[in-house]
Design a protein around this nucleic acid. Structure first.
Lengths: 127, 127
DNA sequence: TTAATAAGATTACATTTGTAGTCTGACTAC
DNA sequence: GTAGTCAGACTACAAATGTAATCTTATTAA
């Protein structure tokens, strides 16, 4: 079954990344964490959190006085969903085109390449 | 130098894909082409075209009575730019994570894998 | 006990995007 | 020459997003 994950905006992804890294967290913890990488005001981050809750992408623990927040989907799920729609839009669905383009870039270290090759080598027999 | 390409929205990408496929095209040609894959009204498509022109992503030929439109950036440039920001947001910049995740998917054929491997094999020496 | 504080709830407002519709002026078929 | 048509210009309007500020209420420090 294909889960339908609500759409997560660019800024909201930053918040999700924090929560996937560690959760549950209070709003203040999320704010503290994001203040290292962004210059968003606390209220802004709080709004993003609230919207994620409203969208049912993040859950809230209201047991304690100060709420804590946690993701309702795994990072992996969300990455896959997002990447699928991305690849469709940008590469006409041809995942391979994208891989080819990016393997040819400078971005990968020799280590990375070694690892990728070993993954590829294992691949065809798995069917 | 890193070119800064204006941001292209999801619907606008559909239009760009048409123009990269073949250009220059009149608005009506773009409309005809998109009407096969979408159910957008002609005026909607025209608006998208106009916005792309406004954003300086598409150029216009006003020599003839009926304008023709053409991309101002190559598909490759745009794909790279978009993918870079995408990978940063979704995979924290770790292109490799994404590659690993998708190489492990079912989505690739044996042929694809063979091709990817041959690209990887050529890679490390190029430095 | 009273005033400051802090968390959560509510409200705000501009920009971008999706999705068109109306207005205008030139050309075209009678 | 007059009415319809069509391209382009301009206008519209709701939802999503970015980016917060204000209001309310409970707790805390003096």
């Amino acid at each position: 079954m294909v889960i339908n994950i609500p759409s997560i905006s660019e800024s909201e992804w930053e918040v999700m990344n924090i929560l996937w890294n560690h959760s549950p967290l209070t709003a203040n913890e999320v704010i503290a964490s994001l203040q290292e990488s962004t210059d968003w005001k606390p209220k802004t981050i709080r709004t993003l959190l609230d919207r994620l809750v409203y969208k049912n992408v993040v859950g809230v623990n209201k047991d304690q006085k100060v709420y804590t927040f946690y993701p309702l989907y795994s990072q992996d799920e969300c990455q896959r969903a997002e990447t699928e729609s991305f690849v469709k839009r940008i590469y006409g669905g041809a995942l391979k085109s994208m891989l080819v383009q990016f393997i040819q870039e400078e971005t990968l270290s020799d280590e990375d390449i070694k690892e990728l090759r070993s993954i590829l080598d294992k691949k065809p027999d798995e069917k």
